[in-house]
């Protein structure tokens, strides 16, 4: 399931990231923020008014804000 479709407040794990669809800089920043397959992730808040964009997620112990177009490149799996 793509990160932008992940239900809020449910523990999940990053399964894969499609680096190719991401612009270089964003991909690189995403990597240096610690986004990698296998990392625990949780969607916390969905943005503003009718846009529901950007997204606030928790990676490790850190909260990161990102846009849904970037989140769409991140494939996640809910923990059961």
């Amino acid at each position: 399931m793509q990160l932008d479709h992940l239900p809020l407040n449910r523990a999940a794990v990053i399964r894969a990231i499609d680096w190719d669809v991401l612009p270089d800089q964003e991909g690189h920043r995403l990597r240096s923020l610690g986004f990698e397959p296998g990392v625990a992730i949780e969607a916390l808040h969905k943005g503003i008014l009718m846009w529901r964009d950007p997204l606030a997620v928790r990676v490790g112990r850190m909260t990161v804000a990102l846009r849904t177009n970037v989140a769409a490149a991140i494939d996640c799996e809910l923990k059961t």
């Binding site: 612009p23 800089q25 964003e26 920043r29 995403l30 923020l33 606030a56 804000a65 990102l66």
Partner: peptide
């Protein structure tokens, strides 16, 4: 055409 938003939010 582009802009990006990717930021760490502190406690």
């Amino acid at each position: 055409q582009t802009s990006s938003f990717l930021i760490e939010m502190p406690r």
